[in-house]
Write a protein that binds this DNA or RNA. Structure first.
Length: 208
DNA sequence: CGATTTTGACCTGCGC
DNA sequence: GCGCAGGTCAAAATCG
């Protein structure tokens, strides 16, 4: 695995079950202040359940009016990669692309191809570092992973995301978030090549 | 020919 | 209320 330049964990929904699964998977539990784990910020959303958007395809727009969009838990990964769309073992269908303000790079929108699964993901290239791809997952898969991605443990099946194949890309961090104004950002000092591949209890996070 | 991508239009939420 | 930006739809184009 390539040396990690920077490890980041962004979490403002520490009580979310899925984020725990992810953290457990990467061994990041020790990395998060226990105060955050036990006492979510006041501004956190009240519901932490994983709720997929109802299928909207093939419905007349009139039926969609008045529907309030529910935002489920979201998880984002920052990955050093030359390709925008990272293989994560699930099949995705692109349903949109938009230019992002203050960024020269467009944002792509994908939905899981499984009709019963409402998982979505957004893919955009960091405008601060064009070599970094930010992938944001929303929702939780209701079906097993159709393709076994390399380097991913079986427990990942069912989660919305899987760490990208480390042989190809450098996974440099992730975050879960709710409303942007409630974001709590943690990370490791970007620096030494002696940094561990993943954060440890000895490598205390900092707030920035 | 079915699945997927592209892309312009439309919808929605939010700040002013 | 208006305008902007993000998100989604859906028809057309493209691909395998």
């Amino acid at each position: 695995m390539m040396a990690r330049e920077k490890a980041e964990l962004f979490s403002d929904n520490p009580g979310d079950r899925s984020s725990f699964s992810f953290l457990d998977l990467l061994g990041m539990r020790d990395f998060i202040p226990s105060s955050l784990l036990e006492h979510p910020p006041e501004s956190s959303i009240t519901s932490t359940s994983v709720e997929a958007d109802p299928p909207k395809l093939n419905k007349p727009r009139s039926e969609k009016k008045g529907q309030k969009r529910k935002k489920g838990p979201r998880f984002a990964f920052r990955t050093k990669s030359e390709v925008d769309h990272l293989e994560d073992g699930y099949r995705w269908r692109k349903y949109g692309q938009k230019a992002v303000k203050n960024s020269p790079y467009p944002r792509s929108y994908y939905r899981c191809t499984c009709v019963t699964c409402g998982v979505k993901k957004r893919v955009e290239r960091s405008f601060e570092d064009p070599s970094v791809v930010v992938t944001t997952y929303e929702g939780q898969h209701t079906h097993p992973c159709p393709i076994a991605p390399r380097g991913v443990m079986p427990e990942v099946a069912g989660l919305a995301f899987a760490p990208p194949p480390v042989q190809v890309n450098t996974f440099i961090g992730g975050y879960s978030y709710l409303p942007l104004d409630a974001r709590h950002v943690y990370g490791l000092p970007s620096s030494s090549s002696s940094s561990p591949a993943y954060p440890t209890a000895n490598n205390a996070p900092f707030l920035f």
